[in-house]
C-alpha cells in the first residue's frame, strides 16, 4: 500500500512548514486543465450548471469524449457546442474528456 506512506510525507512536510511544488506536473494533466478551463463559463463551476445549460458534472470521460466528437461531426445536434468542438483535435478532446470526467 502506497497511500499511507504518501500521507505521511504530506503531513511531515505540512508540519515542517515546507512549501512543496510538484514540479513535474504531468503534461497531460496541465493541458487538459487549461483546455477545459472555459467550460465552466457556460456549464457552471465544477460542471454544475445553475441554469438552462446542461450540467457536465458526473459524466464519465468516455461519455464526454463521445459527446464532444459527435458535436464536432454534427452527428449530435447543438446550438453552439458544434462550433466549439470543431476547435479541438482528437487528442485534445481526449484530454478535455479525461479532465472533466473527474468532476463528480
Amino acid at each position: 500500500m502506497q497511500r499511507p506512506i504518501h500521507t505521511l510525507i504530506i503531513t511531515a512536510a505540512t508540519l515542517a512548514g515546507v512549501v512543496i511544488y510538484p514540479a513535474t506536473a504531468d503534461e497531460a494533466l496541465n493541458r487538459g486543465a487549461i483546455l477545459s478551463a472555459s467550460c465552466a463559463s457556460c456549464h457552471g463551476p465544477e460542471g454544475r450548471s445553475p441554469g438552462a445549460i446542461p450540467a457536465i458534472a458526473g459524466k464519465t470521460a468516455e461519455d464526454l469524449r463521445v459527446m464532444l466528437e459527435d458535436f464536432r461531426s454534427g452527428k449530435r445536434r447543438s446550438t453552439v457546442m458544434g462550433r466549439h468542438a470543431k476547435g479541438y483535435s482528437d487528442e485534445e478532446i481526449q484530454l478535455i474528456a479525461t479532465h472533466l470526467g473527474k468532476q463528480k
Binding site: 502506497q2 497511500r3 504518501h6 500521507t7 510525507i9 504530506i10 512536510a13 505540512t14 508540519l15 515542517a16 512548514g17 515546507v18 512549501v19 512543496i20 511544488y21 510538484p22 514540479a23 513535474t24 506536473a25 504531468d26 494533466l29 496541465n30 486543465a33 487549461i34 477545459s36 478551463a37 465552466a40 465544477e46 479532465h99 473527474k102 468532476q103 463528480k104
Partner: peptide
C-alpha cells in the same frame, strides 16, 4: 516522488478537480 504526490492528491480529492496541479503550503 513528485508524480506520486500529484496522483495521491488527485485520488484523495484534496484538491478541486479543476486545479491544474496542487501546491501545498504549511505553517
Amino acid at each position: 516522488t513528485r508524480r506520486h504526490f500529484i496522483e495521491l492528491i488527485g485520488s484523495a480529492g484534496a484538491v478541486s478537480s479543476m486545479a491544474a496541479w496542487p501546491i501545498v503550503a504549511g505553517g
